[in-house]
Lab assay of single mutants.
Amino acid sequence: VQTVGQWLESIGLPQYENHLMANGFDNVQFMGSNVMEDQDLLEIGILNSGHRQRILQAIQLL
Results as ranks from 00 to 15, higher is better:
residue 35 V to F: 12
residue 50 G to L: 05
residue 6 Q to N: 10
residue 59 I to E: 04
residue 25 F to C: 08
residue 37 E to A: 11
residue 30 F to I: 15
residue 12 G to S: 04
residue 39 Q to R: 14
residue 52 R to L: 01
residue 37 E to M: 09
residue 48 N to Y: 05
residue 20 L to F: 15
residue 58 A to C: 07
residue 39 Q to S: 13
residue 60 Q to S: 10
residue 27 N to Q: 11
residue 34 N to A: 13
residue 3 T to C: 04
residue 15 Q to G: 03
residue 29 Q to G: 13
residue 34 N to R: 15
residue 34 N to D: 09
residue 61 L to P: 07
residue 19 H to R: 10
residue 56 L to Q: 06
residue 18 N to W: 10
residue 48 N to L: 03
residue 36 M to H: 12
residue 3 T to L: 04
residue 1 V to F: 11
residue 23 N to R: 11
residue 5 G to V: 08
residue 48 N to W: 00
residue 21 M to L: 09
residue 62 L to S: 06
residue 6 Q to T: 09
residue 7 W to Y: 03
residue 59 I to S: 08
residue 51 H to S: 02
residue 42 L to K: 13
residue 59 I to N: 06
residue 28 V to E: 06
residue 12 G to C: 04
residue 28 V to P: 08
residue 35 V to A: 14
residue 22 A to P: 01
residue 8 L to A: 03
residue 61 L to V: 13
residue 46 I to E: 03
residue 54 R to C: 07
residue 30 F to R: 15
residue 11 I to F: 06
residue 7 W to Q: 02
residue 62 L to M: 07
residue 19 H to M: 15
residue 22 A to Y: 07
residue 21 M to P: 03
residue 53 Q to W: 08
residue 46 I to L: 02
residue 15 Q to C: 04
residue 5 G to L: 12
residue 42 L to F: 10
residue 13 L to D: 00
residue 14 P to M: 05
residue 49 S to N: 08
residue 43 E to V: 07
residue 33 S to K: 14
residue 30 F to Q: 15
residue 3 T to P: 05
residue 14 P to R: 09
residue 40 D to K: 11
residue 11 I to W: 01
residue 47 L to T: 15
residue 47 L to D: 13
residue 24 G to D: 04
residue 45 G to S: 03
residue 21 M to H: 07
residue 2 Q to C: 09
residue 37 E to H: 12
residue 4 V to L: 12
residue 51 H to F: 00
residue 2 Q to A: 08
residue 22 A to I: 08
residue 55 I to G: 01
residue 57 Q to G: 11
residue 9 E to L: 10
residue 18 N to D: 12
residue 17 E to K: 11
residue 40 D to A: 08
residue 29 Q to W: 15
residue 33 S to Y: 10
residue 56 L to H: 05
residue 43 E to A: 13
residue 6 Q to H: 08
residue 31 M to K: 06
residue 22 A to R: 12
residue 59 I to V: 14
residue 54 R to H: 06
residue 56 L to D: 00
residue 34 N to W: 15
residue 54 R to W: 03
residue 30 F to D: 15
residue 12 G to R: 04
residue 35 V to D: 15
residue 41 L to E: 01
residue 28 V to Q: 05
residue 2 Q to W: 10
residue 44 I to L: 11
residue 32 G to Y: 15
residue 7 W to A: 02
residue 3 T to S: 14
residue 5 G to T: 07
residue 46 I to M: 01
residue 16 Y to Q: 03
residue 29 Q to L: 11
residue 12 G to D: 06
residue 25 F to D: 03
residue 49 S to G: 11
residue 17 E to D: 05
residue 13 L to K: 03
residue 3 T to Y: 04
residue 29 Q to K: 13
residue 35 V to Q: 13
residue 21 M to A: 09
residue 21 M to Q: 04
residue 2 Q to T: 10
residue 10 S to R: 08
residue 61 L to Q: 15
residue 12 G to L: 01
residue 24 G to A: 05
residue 17 E to G: 05
residue 51 H to C: 01
residue 6 Q to D: 15
residue 34 N to L: 14
residue 26 D to E: 11
residue 38 D to L: 01
residue 44 I to R: 04
residue 56 L to A: 05
residue 16 Y to R: 00
residue 5 G to S: 09
residue 45 G to D: 03
residue 62 L to R: 04
residue 31 M to W: 08
residue 9 E to Q: 08
residue 27 N to P: 08
residue 6 Q to R: 08
residue 15 Q to M: 07
residue 2 Q to E: 09
residue 23 N to M: 12
residue 59 I to A: 14
residue 16 Y to S: 03
residue 8 L to W: 02
residue 61 L to R: 14
residue 56 L to P: 00
residue 22 A to D: 12
residue 7 W to G: 02
residue 57 Q to P: 00
residue 31 M to A: 09
residue 49 S to R: 12
residue 22 A to K: 14
residue 38 D to I: 00
residue 27 N to I: 10
residue 23 N to G: 10
residue 1 V to R: 10
residue 56 L to V: 07
residue 6 Q to G: 07
residue 45 G to R: 03
residue 58 A to Q: 08
residue 62 L to I: 08
residue 49 S to H: 14
residue 13 L to C: 04
residue 40 D to I: 08
residue 23 N to L: 13
residue 29 Q to D: 14
residue 18 N to L: 09
residue 25 F to V: 09
residue 21 M to T: 13
residue 43 E to P: 00
residue 7 W to P: 01
residue 39 Q to V: 09
residue 25 F to P: 00
residue 39 Q to E: 12
residue 47 L to S: 14
residue 41 L to V: 01
residue 57 Q to R: 11
residue 9 E to D: 12
residue 59 I to T: 09
residue 46 I to V: 10
residue 57 Q to H: 11
residue 61 L to Y: 10
residue 34 N to P: 09
residue 59 I to W: 14
residue 55 I to W: 02
residue 52 R to A: 00
residue 13 L to T: 02
residue 5 G to A: 15
residue 36 M to L: 13
residue 34 N to H: 14
residue 21 M to D: 01
residue 45 G to Q: 02
residue 53 Q to L: 10
residue 61 L to F: 10
residue 50 G to V: 09
residue 44 I to G: 02
residue 59 I to M: 13
residue 35 V to C: 11
residue 22 A to V: 09
residue 22 A to T: 11
residue 4 V to H: 01
residue 50 G to Y: 04
residue 51 H to T: 03
residue 44 I to W: 11
residue 6 Q to P: 02
residue 35 V to N: 12
residue 38 D to C: 04
residue 59 I to D: 03
residue 40 D to H: 09
residue 54 R to L: 07
residue 32 G to N: 12
residue 23 N to C: 11
residue 17 E to H: 06
residue 2 Q to D: 08
residue 31 M to T: 08
residue 46 I to N: 01
residue 54 R to K: 13
residue 13 L to W: 04
residue 6 Q to F: 04
residue 38 D to T: 05
residue 53 Q to Y: 09
residue 26 D to L: 09
residue 10 S to E: 11
residue 5 G to F: 08
residue 38 D to M: 03
residue 33 S to D: 15
residue 21 M to K: 13
residue 20 L to Q: 02
residue 14 P to L: 06
residue 8 L to G: 01
residue 37 E to V: 11
residue 38 D to K: 02
residue 59 I to Y: 10
residue 10 S to Q: 11
residue 18 N to T: 11
residue 29 Q to Y: 10
residue 53 Q to F: 09
residue 31 M to Y: 08
residue 29 Q to P: 10
residue 14 P to K: 10
residue 35 V to Y: 08
residue 2 Q to V: 11
residue 49 S to V: 11
residue 56 L to N: 04
residue 9 E to S: 10
residue 41 L to C: 00
residue 52 R to Y: 00
residue 15 Q to K: 03
residue 19 H to K: 14
residue 52 R to V: 00
residue 30 F to S: 15
residue 15 Q to E: 09
residue 7 W to L: 09
residue 52 R to Q: 00
residue 52 R to W: 04
residue 46 I to K: 00
residue 36 M to C: 12
residue 58 A to K: 06
residue 52 R to H: 02
residue 51 H to Y: 02
residue 37 E to T: 13
residue 16 Y to T: 00
residue 13 L to P: 00
residue 11 I to G: 01
residue 44 I to E: 01
residue 47 L to Q: 15
residue 53 Q to E: 12
residue 11 I to K: 00
residue 3 T to F: 02
residue 46 I to H: 01
residue 25 F to H: 08
residue 15 Q to V: 01
residue 27 N to D: 13
residue 11 I to V: 06
residue 1 V to M: 06
residue 13 L to M: 06
residue 38 D to H: 07
